[in-house]
Design a protein around this nucleic acid. Structure first.
Lengths: 228, 228
DNA sequence: ACCTGAACACCGTTCAAGT
DNA sequence: ACCTGAACACCGTTCAAGT
């Protein structure tokens, strides 16, 4: 439970979870997830790779802690979007999630690959479900809407960050879809007609579109036909 | 372009893209993505690992081809959902995507980690955008809706397959969320109240809920207030 | 108590050389 | 033309031994 927690007298430890986590997130930002190895992290901490295993049982454990840490700054208080109804608050929370993932290189990949259940993740989820319940949604609808928005947001940001990394490093990869569509046999008439939008890099606008659809769907479900 | 394609006279090649792809997908199903290594795949083909690089430039290349192959069976013809309006067709296409990803272990992870632009992926996208355009949606809305549904579906299935694997292998991992929520200091009132839904394993129902929200949002956007 | 050193069992990728 | 053999530069993880 608290194996290396109470720093009894002795040599001051060069390692601890908090500092290691910080260094790991820095390394992630600088080099990306593929370059985040236990050995490189140990190097950055001035230690041998094996030493990390006193603080994290596995690399997966480290990644889970990183995912939890990424959401730590998210403001889940009501005041954060006080000036609005339930749909404004929901949108604010969803945008905060995307922003938190975007704040670190490969943030969405780290988050998608783990199952963090710490206070920042649960606090976010509780706030989200709370907004819907207090707006009068059924409990099961509120819970399912959480998954819809989180899965959409993670899926979107995964794509967004993949596109960002493909853009620098291989500047011509942006044209891959365009080429495949235009050079297409068979032809893709609908993709051709919508290519400008399909190849747009305005990810914020794209995210807002989908978020708006989901919230619009929730609105329709809450007030099946009347105006509240 | 067609380096090892035309089988000129000589020893019949033990390798080719199609057979290798098939074996790779089998291996994926049996052992999962983490166990799918170039060496193990080579073993399964009765060959040395280096030989694979005559057919796939990198492992990423192989994974992209696998992603494309996964969508090959998806029926994108109109008749597949002939008996319905645009929203029924859209739902059918979205369900087909989820089903195709679920058909292989870690299918969503493979798909999310690649950028396939082959005929089956583009065919799916073209059909999807086509349904919306023919239903009278604006071109840019149709294109953005494609991303919304695909990103949601991939995000959802990523979670679904992660939950499935966590379930067998560590049968008590299902209770992880429950424990974290109930043992929670601080408490999570809204998560506690909705725990049964949050811990449900009826992923089809969960998927349908989110899909319904998105389609509901599209409906509202198409007919801003009238009933069409 | 905390970390080193060294090992174990692997990886993806390259490439001269064989057939 | 197609594949082998062997190497290169790595991985995550474990664990006796040192301090």
């Amino acid at each position: 439970m608290s194996s290396p927690s109470t720093p009894t007298r002795g040599r001051p430890a060069r390692l601890d979870r908090a500092r290691t986590l910080e260094t790991a997130l820095d390394l992630l930002n600088q080099s990306g997830l593929d370059a985040l190895t236990m050995r490189r992290l140990a190097d950055a901490m001035g230690v041998q790779a094996g030493a990390l295993y006193r603080y994290f049982a596995t690399k997966q454990d480290l990644l889970t802690a990183m995912a939890e840490r990424m959401l730590e700054g998210v403001d889940t208080t009501a005041h954060a979007a006080d000036s609005g109804d339930w749909s404004d608050r929901l949108a604010t929370l969803a945008r905060s999630l995307r922003t938190a993932l975007l704040a670190h290189r490969d943030g969405a990949r780290v988050f998608a690959g783990t199952h963090a259940t710490g206070p920042s993740v649960l606090g976010f989820a509780d706030a989200f479900v709370g907004v819907l319940r207090e707006a009068g949604f059924r409990d099961d609808d509120a819970a399912r809407a959480l998954y819809t928005v989180v899965n959409y947001t993670v899926g979107h940001t995964l794509e967004e960050q993949a596109a960002l990394q493909a853009a620098d490093g291989d500047p011509e990869s942006v044209g891959t879809l365009r080429e495949a569509v235009t050079a297409g046999t068979p032809p893709y008439p609908h993709l051709s007609a919508t290519l400008p939008t399909l190849t747009s890099t305005d990810f914020t606008r794209l995210f807002e579109f989908g978020l708006d659809l989901i919230i619009g769907g929730l609105r329709a479900r809450r007030a099946p036909s009347a105006g509240d």
